[in-house]
Computed example of a mutant assay.
Amino acid sequence: MVGVSTKSLYGVAAMHALYNSPRNKLMQIKEIAAMTQISHGYLEQILSNLKKHGFVVSIRGANGGYKLATDASSIIVLDIIEALEGELFVAGQNVGASVVLDSFWKDIQEKVRAVFHVKLSELDKAYATYFYEI
């Protein structure tokens, strides 16, 4: 089954909160947790992983916190998910033992990956219109 785990949902939510911080201001974990409703401990683990993959930087100290490591226009949601989970959808080679089934799974893999190929900076714009159409 194809799905996105809570870890990925929370990771994208945390990145979105950092993106929306005023003028790329450092945000403390407690601020991000309050905005996203993610537990402090779990958020700490997620941010540590995102830092290890180069998505966020952290500054220690009383005025420290987290911020995006690069411009949000260069961060793809798919990359965030795969940093936290590994490859999103893997269609094994020769799963179906036929050219037709192998092509089918490869096509599905490409479509799933395309759904998440959205820039962090475009999430608000891309989906704001969706909610106004409902």
Rank of each mutant, 00 (worst) to 15 (best):
G41A: 13
G41M: 12
G41H: 08
Y42L: 12
L43I: 00
L43N: 06
E44M: 05
E44C: 04
E44G: 10
E44R: 07
I46R: 04
L47M: 13
L47S: 03
L47R: 08
L47C: 03
S48C: 13
K52H: 10
K52I: 13
G54R: 06
F55D: 05
F55S: 07
V57L: 07
S58Q: 14
I59R: 10
G61Q: 06
G61E: 10
G61S: 07
G64W: 01
G65L: 04
L68G: 11
L68T: 10
A69Y: 02
A69I: 06
T70E: 14
D71Q: 13
A72T: 02
S73G: 08
S73L: 05
S74V: 02
S74T: 08
S74N: 07
I75P: 12
I75G: 11
V77G: 03
V77A: 02
D79N: 13
D79K: 03
D79T: 02
I80W: 00
I80R: 00
I81F: 14
I81A: 08
I81P: 12
I81G: 14
I81C: 10
E82C: 08
L84A: 15
L84V: 13
E85S: 15
E85Y: 02
E85I: 03
E87T: 14
E87H: 12
E87L: 06
E87S: 14
L88G: 05
L88F: 10
L88P: 06
L88K: 02
F89Q: 05
V90A: 12
V90K: 13
V90G: 04
A91S: 11
